[in-house]
């Protein structure tokens, strides 16, 4: 990993504890990502993943350490780093077009109305909301709201997209379509993206690399899992890939047991040199080859 487009260097976040002293959510965290890469962070609640994202966004400041993006240390928020919020965070008094246009005018102050509108429209079309431009957020379904959030983030053509569990509030079907959209857009535009998720399958489908964090307080980045699945993977046949279960089991095992015991098991853990797991190369694969799933007659009837 020579090209460090994003480089998180030795950041720590501490909060004053209830009985004096300080509680560290995480200490000495190092993480880097290449341009055009899609990174997903997985960890339990309270491990500080949202804090990492907020620090990347500039909404929060680390107690120690720096974040370097594109060769420059970040200071506060920036139009180069767009955030897609978990709660979509649309301004309810503005229409769909108004919400996207608000972002566009924030980036290009000098643009006239027609230009802003045309630019915003492009991104509304991109997320498939053509025809709903003049609706208010309250008239939209949860999935459509999050589409507006994505359009708003993309409309400012950011260097990095930061997503804080963007689909966790959506139903499974909508989540699937939006994952497809995000993946398509990121592949087409070569967008660098950093996402937080709880959903293992979401991470396997979207991410090039998956960052596993141990439980907080005192959370560490334990492992980086390189996604062994090919770039042209599809959401529907993901589970047929020979390495799918291997990578999924590895992550689930980590979340279920090793995320708690990691600190005790690995006393010599070097936060600057986190182990990179390459499924199929450094890890034995559990499922060797895809095979037809046999459906029991009883199950067929039950369905």
């Amino acid at each position: 990993m020579t090209d460090k487009f994003i480089s998180i260097e030795a950041i720590a976040k501490r909060y004053p504890g209830a009985s004096g002293g300080e509680i560290a959510v995480f200490e000495d965290l190092w993480l880097s990502m290449a341009r055009g890469e899609f990174g997903c962070v997985i960890g339990h609640s309270g491990c500080g993943k949202t804090t990492v994202l907020n620090i990347l966004a500039g909404l929060d400041e680390p107690s120690e350490g720096t974040v370097i993006v594109d060769g420059q240390a970040i200071e506060g928020t920036s139009l180069d780093r767009a955030v897609i919020f978990q709660s979509h965070a649309l301004l309810p008094w503005r229409s769909v077009l108004g919400n996207v246009a608000y972002a566009v005018t924030s980036k290009w102050r000098g643009w006239d109305r027609a230009r802003v509108k045309a630019h915003a429209q492009t991104f509304i079309d991109l997320v498939g909301l053509t025809g709903s431009e003049h609706k208010r957020p309250s008239e939209l379904s949860g999935g459509m709201k999050q589409r507006v959030g994505i359009a708003r983030a993309l409309s400012i053509t950011p260097k990095i997209m930061l997503m804080d569990e963007p689909f966790s509030a959506l139903d499974a079907l909508t989540r699937g379509t939006l994952q497809d959209e995000v993946r398509r857009i990121c592949l087409e535009t070569g967008q660098t993206a950093f996402m937080i998720t709880h959903d293992v399958d979401e991470a396997i489908y979207l991410a090039d690399r998956i960052f596993l964090m141990t439980n907080g307080p005192g959370a560490v980045l334990a492992e980086i899992v390189e996604n062994p699945l090919p770039k042209d993977r599809g959401r529907t046949d993901l589970h047929r890939h020979p390495y799918y279960y291997a990578v999924r089991n590895h992550i689930v095992d980590f979340l279920v047991s090793r995320s708690k015991t990691f600190a005790a098991d690995m006393p010599g853990h070097d936060p600057r040199n986190v182990r990179v797991v390459k499924i199929g190369v450094s890890e034995p694969t559990i499922v060797a080859a895809p095979r037809a799933v046999e459906t029991h007659p009883a199950q067929t009837i039950a369905r």
């Binding site: 920036s78 139009l79 955030v83 919020f85 709660s87 965070a89 924030s106």
Partner: peptide
């Protein structure tokens, strides 16, 4: 979150 939207948009 609305304030944060404004902040991320500088």
């Amino acid at each position: 979150e609305w304030i944060n939207v404004a902040r991320t948009l500088e």
